[in-house]
């Protein structure tokens, strides 16, 4: 078990390293291949030679790429210093870099946006888990019935709807036509829980709908498979009540795969729900990443990619561990 854990952890760290290296490579190499200057990308609107040289020096852009990468890694582990005029500026570990475009450290900037993404992902996750699994279970138990068909059709429609369309549509309907909800503007939970709830409601529902559709389909398929297994038949033959058969046996093994996927989905969302955040103007990690990409703010792009990969890798790890705990068939080793 310990050896397995250590191996998984090493794997996770390696994956993170590769993600950063690839991101790093793309953003430093591609501009070179296409003939534009990364330093110029940084300052954007000014082209003053002195300014470009200053940026190049500060960013260490003249160093070989591996040296730059090494410095970046060192910053995460031990923090690093940036020369900035009269002062040397220290960036504490975990230092994800320093955005010269906005004159701020990347780590606190992203930590600022994290609560928004957390609110969005967790709230939506609760909704879709409840909604999707319930619909899936009902569907499976009443296979072939009208409710089953309706659920399955809605679910299929749900996975076929792009969120940037449902998002706009729901805004148009609930905000503009019906006037039930206000125009979105995120309010932190600690500032006003009720406002926070009202503001997040539409993004939650829209995002959850998409996922609930997938989960309903998945739950139904798994449940059907489980219900066909011998041990369920045995349980029924033993005369156990339907309630116990379904609630204790079928659900447990039918839902095991859901746990896996739930973990992975949540991990992916925590790295920034780019489209949802863009449609609902939520300043979360995904929104920040989009802004950074549009403004060529490499340190921020790298930072978000790191955090996103971090969540995905952690989610994978957790899922594997949980899976091994709840499914005895999985051997560790």
């Amino acid at each position: 078990m310990v050896a397995y854990l250590i191996r998984r952890l090493i794997n996770a760290v390696l994956t993170l390293l590769v993600v950063t290296l690839v991101t790093f490579g793309i953003f430093f190499m591609v501009p070179k291949l296409t003939g534009s200057d990364p330093a110029l990308l940084y300052i954007g609107k000014t082209a003053d030679k002195v300014a470009v040289e200053g940026i190049r020096e500060k960013m260490g852009l003249s160093d070989p790429i591996l040296v730059q990468y090494g410095k970046f890694l060192k910053g995460i582990v031990a923090g690093r210093d940036y020369a900035n005029g009269p002062d040397v500026q220290h960036c504490d570990a975990p230092c994800l870099g320093y955005s010269f475009k906005t004159e701020q450290e990347v780590t606190p900037l992203l930590m600022d946006d994290l609560p928004v993404t957390l609110s969005l992902a967790l709230g939506a996750a609760i909704l879709w888990l409840i909604g999707g699994v319930t619909a899936g279970v009902i569907s499976a138990l009443r296979k072939g019935s009208i409710p089953d068909r309706a659920v399955m059709f809605i679910a299929l429609a749900g996975v076929s709807l792009p969120i940037y369309f449902t998002g706009l549509l729901s805004k148009q309907i609930f905000v503009n036509w019906l006037g039930w909800l206000p125009e979105g503007n995120y309010v932190p939970f600690l500032e006003s829980p009720s406002e926070w709830f009202i503001q997040m409601l539409l993004p939650w529902i829209t995002l959850a709908f998409l996922f609930a559709a997938t989960y309903a389909r998945l739950t139904r398929a798994n449940m059907l498979e489980t219900l066909g297994e011998d041990y369920i038949r045995t349980a029924r033959a033993k005369g156990l009540t339907e309630r116990i058969v379904i609630g204790k046996h079928a659900l447990r093994s039918g839902l095991t795969p859901i746990v896996t996927i739930f973990g992975l989905d949540l991990g992916a969302l925590l790295g920034g729900a780019v489209l949802t955040e863009a449609v609902f103007n939520l300043r979360g990690l995904g929104y920040q990443a989009l802004q950074a990409i549009r403004g060529n703010d490499l340190p921020v792009i790298l930072g978000v990619t790191m955090i996103a990969a971090f969540f995905i890798v952690i989610a994978n790890l957790v899922v594997d561990l949980v899976y091994s705990a709840i499914d005895p068939r999985v051997r560790l080793g």
């Binding site: 300052i43 000014t46 040289e53 200053g54 940026i55």
Partner: peptide, 24 residues
């Protein structure tokens, strides 16, 4: 004049006041 540290703003005054000094 410290464009290496403080880029972003207008630089008209550098053009007019530097007059060959190369002030950094």
């Amino acid at each position: 004049f410290a464009q290496d540290v403080l880029p972003g703003g207008p630089v008209y005054l550098i053009d007019i006041l530097d007059q060959g000094q190369g002030y950094k």
